[in-house]
């Protein structure tokens, strides 16, 4: 079985994101870049499958500028077999439909049985590329996936629902968008890191990719800084609870 995992490079969740002076982009200086967290879970899902069935091939692909290679190398170090970057002029400014089209073009050539995406990227949170890619390929799509298992009839897919899960079956190729699951993405082995450093990463060009919907950022602003909290100190716990209830109802309006 051949997996294709689509990964996006995003500012690491530990990075403090700052808005640039023009108010339309973020400051990229000093940002640590990593693989978007749900994409890491997608990689883990594929690699777990490979642990069970060693003839599985896990390919990864990313659309983006040159630094995207670091994310691909990280995935290679975790144990993925090969990586492709879709780069060139305009690769990092494509809209989500354009990215889906670029991925679809590559996927058609690479010929995977299954495509995994994160359920959403942790920077823009659009949750768009996965379903759009399925649409572009004409494949079915299942979202919120936490587990997969091959079966006689194709692939069994666990889809998270509120408080439980549904099991779906796919008889042929399918695009899955992956939710966080119990198994944390693995930490790479050192031989894995060393091998990944030396691996060739072939590059495809985005030139000619159809990007029908151009997105323009009008303005970016940081979330309003949180107001100072209230601390109830010294005194009667019961009175505090009553006061808290009042404040939650009248001021915070959450009750």
């Amino acid at each position: 079985m051949r997996f294709l995992v689509c990964i996006k490079q995003v500012p690491d969740s530990t990075t403090r994101v700052k808005v640039a002076a023009d108010g339309k982009a973020i400051v990229t200086d000093g940002v640590t870049w990593s693989i978007s967290p749900y994409d890491e879970y997608a990689i883990e899902l594929a690699l777990e499958h490979k642990d069970q069935a060693p003839d599985t091939v896990v390919s990864i692909i990313s659309v983006g500028g040159p630094r995207t290679k670091d994310a691909l190398r990280q995935a290679l170090a975790m144990g993925c077999d090969d990586a492709t970057i879709v780069g060139g002029d305009g690769a990092d400014t494509l809209g989500p439909l354009g990215v889906a089209n670029a991925l679809a073009a590559a996927a058609t050539e690479l010929g995977p049985d299954l495509i995994l995406c994160g359920k959403q990227a942790s920077d823009d949170d659009q949750g768009f590329v996965g379903p759009a890619l399925a649409e572009a390929l004409g494949w079915p799509h299942v979202s919120q996936v936490t587990k997969i298992a091959p079966s006689a009839a194709g692939t069994e897919i666990w889809k998270e629902t509120d408080g439980g899960h549904e099991v779906w079956k796919a008889g042929g190729p399918v695009v899955l968008t992956v939710q966080k699951s119990a198994k944390e993405p693995r930490y790479p082995s050192l031989p894995g890191i060393m091998k990944a450093k030396k691996k060739e990463i072939p590059e495809r060009s985005v030139a000619g990719v159809d990007d029908p919907v151009k997105m323009v950022i009008v303005a970016l602003e940081p979330p309003p800084s949180r107001g100072g909290g209230k601390i109830f100190k010294d005194g009667d716990t019961k009175a505090h609870a009553a006061e808290l209830a009042t404040l939650l109802r009248d001021e915070a309006k959450v009750l």
Binding site: D12, T14, T15, T32, S34, E184, R186, Y187, P188, S189, L190, P191, G192
Partner: peptide, 21 residues
């Protein structure tokens, strides 16, 4: 840890954090 990448998950998380943050 280095050869088998088999450190306990919480340890792996701590190492990832050291790398990234």
């Amino acid at each position: 840890t280095m050869q088998e990448a088999a450190a306990p998950p919480e340890a792996q998380r701590a190492m990832t954090n050291i790398e990234r943050a």
